[in-house]
Design a protein around this nucleic acid. Sequence first.
DNA 1: TCGGATTACGTGCACCGTAATGATC
DNA 2: GATCATTACGGTGCACGTAATCCGA
Lengths: 286, 286
Amino acid sequence: MIEIYLLEQLAAFARYGTLSKAAEELLISQPALSRSMKKIEEDLGVKLFIRENKKLLLNETGKLAAQLAQSQIDQNKELVSRVIAFDRSLHSIHIGACAPQPMAELMPILQDHFGDMTISSELVYGEKLIKGLKSGAYHLGILREAIDDKELFIQRYMSESLFICVPEGHRLAKRESVKFADLSGERFLLYQHIGFWKSVCEDYMQDTTFLIQPDRDTFADLVANTDYPAFASDRIVSGDYRMEGRVLIPIDEEKARYTFYIACPIEDKRKYAAFFNSVRSEVIGR
Amino acid sequence: MIEIYLLEQLAAFARYGTLSKAAEELLISQPALSRSMKKIEEDLGVKLFIRENKKLLLNETGKLAAQLAQSQIDQNKELVSRVIAFDRSLHSIHIGACAPQPMAELMPILQDHFGDMTISSELVYGEKLIKGLKSGAYHLGILREAIDDKELFIQRYMSESLFICVPEGHRLAKRESVKFADLSGERFLLYQHIGFWKSVCEDYMQDTTFLIQPDRDTFADLVANTDYPAFASDRIVSGDYRMEGRVLIPIDEEKARYTFYIACPIEDKRKYAAFFNSVRSEVIGR
DNA sequence: TCGGATTACGTGCACCGTAATGATC
DNA sequence: GATCATTACGGTGCACGTAATCCGA
């Protein structure tokens, strides 16, 4: 058995060609490296170098050894990263959410239940979310429909309705409610990371132009300082949300209101039972 | 990077289940192993064990780590053996010979030329020998025919003729020479390791029974102490070979005389040039 | 009381760095 | 003189063993 540090030194010598250069890269002294190379030969019981004219060169066996050493080093590094990744996976919950708002509201409950774990989320919807839940890519999911699937446990969570948010002087500002068709020809500010709502916009408001903003701050700035209309939701409005100089108008469309469901692989149902119960009571309690 | 000795200790603990047992197997003390396990956790920055009731158990991450450790150990061992095997291959000449006698006579010349190398030989003939020469399985070959092959360099070497060796009282003892047919019905002692000669016996003396001897000493003993006929060759007879109470009679058949050739892959021709020249002059010199 | 894990403590060796030497360009 | 490998020598960190302690069956 040859220790890794020796293999690393051999591989470094093979890469850099001279002891001096390799020693410098390895942050050890030249004599130390010289001795290590002797030790490897000793340990293997095989000549690895051609020593001539005070030059040190790898012979054919040495080249093979250096190559195998490098692959051993790579595998050692992979061992470390795999173990760490596995450990992390045991201490994290990754959630696939179809929209940001229900995810944001779930966060405090998750932290209550899994305070010692890392909670991360990803905006994803449709088939990719379902597959990810089944494959384990997501531990939990926030769906926008109660699909019937034997592999998944699903529970009703909350609803969200879409509003428009227009300046007081806007042509629609006095309306009680609007339809998608009313927005034709308008130019709407749209924050990019809104999950499936983006597809709703694209599918049902094809005659509306969207000014897509990838940056959250820029988006907020534009809403505050321009007259472009934008969207909002009842989950934000219902709080103490207020916006100077703008009015909120509900969208009267079936596709502007969604009920969300939380889901997990059926085999994890027990593991998350307490959490699911908390969600039920908290949401009912509103 | 985790040193191999730590991985080995982890794998041993995983195998034996307790520190005490594993330490005993590893020939180190229990406290040393205890510390090493702590160090691995420290180095990886990850919990690998469940410590409860003074028992030490691997957790899921630990089981993964131990498994990966074992595979790393296996690969380290393979590295060592591959390097050693490669080195040996550089310092050895392996010869595929179709018969033992020409091989034996080649040995002194080989040792003259390649004194620092390990010379080994294997009895093999026909297609397997040709393929082995081309694939590098044999560095040199002793063939019984001068095949025409662009990949091989071939040079005439020596000839050998088959004799029978019968007791003075044998029915054939007074003959000048014999034919294969004369041996019909006889029971011949036959040493097993005679290369292609075995196939000659089987192909051209189908009515002769062969008492095949896998052991050299037993064979010699039987020749010396029984009246069974056996074979001999002019290469042995020509020396000061004598056998009490037996006579040697040449076999007058085309298939009882072969000319041997030595061969190597064409790309090695230069490497063995001096040796090939020695063979030519020595054999001519006889 | 025994078997097994951990803690405490002292030790030796293996690896290291500095310095000097040898050797080639 | 510059560069590079090796040898010599002295230091030190680290993994080890012994001994003691703790804990549960």
